[in-house]
C-alpha cells in the first residue's frame, strides 16, 4: 500500500527529485496540472506508458481529490 502524502510532503519530495504523475484524463491534465507532472491516465497505466518513469526515483501519483 502506497504512503499518503500531504501537500507539504509532496513539495518536499518533488524538491528532492520525485516524479509527479497525474492519472486523470488528458483533457484535464492539459487544462491544468502540477508543475512538472506527466500524464498517465489510470486507464492507460501499464508497462508501455510507464516506460519513461525513472524507477530509481520516488513516484507521486494524484488525481482530482480523495473522493
Amino acid at each position: 500500500m502506497a504512503n499518503s502524502l500531504h501537500r507539504d510532503g509532496v513539495r518536499r519530495l518533488v524538491a528532492k527529485g520525485a516524479q509527479l504523475v497525474e492519472v486523470l484524463p488528458a483533457a484535464e491534465y492539459d487544462e491544468e496540472h502540477l508543475p512538472g507532472a506527466v500524464n498517465i491516465p489510470l486507464k492507460t497505466l501499464g508497462t508501455e506508458t510507464i516506460a519513461d518513469l525513472d524507477r530509481s526515483r520516488p513516484v507521486i501519483v494524484y488525481c482530482w481529490d480523495s473522493l
Binding site: A2, R7, L24, G46, I50, Y62, W64
Partner: peptide, 29 residues
Amino acid sequence: MSPRAACRLETLGFTAVYDYTAGKADWLA
C-alpha cells in the same frame, strides 16, 4: 483513482510510490 494508480505502479515493480490523496483540488485551493 490515485490509490488504484499507486497500487498498479507497485505491481509494476515501483518501490517508492506515494499517493497525494488530496490531489489537484487541494493544490489549487
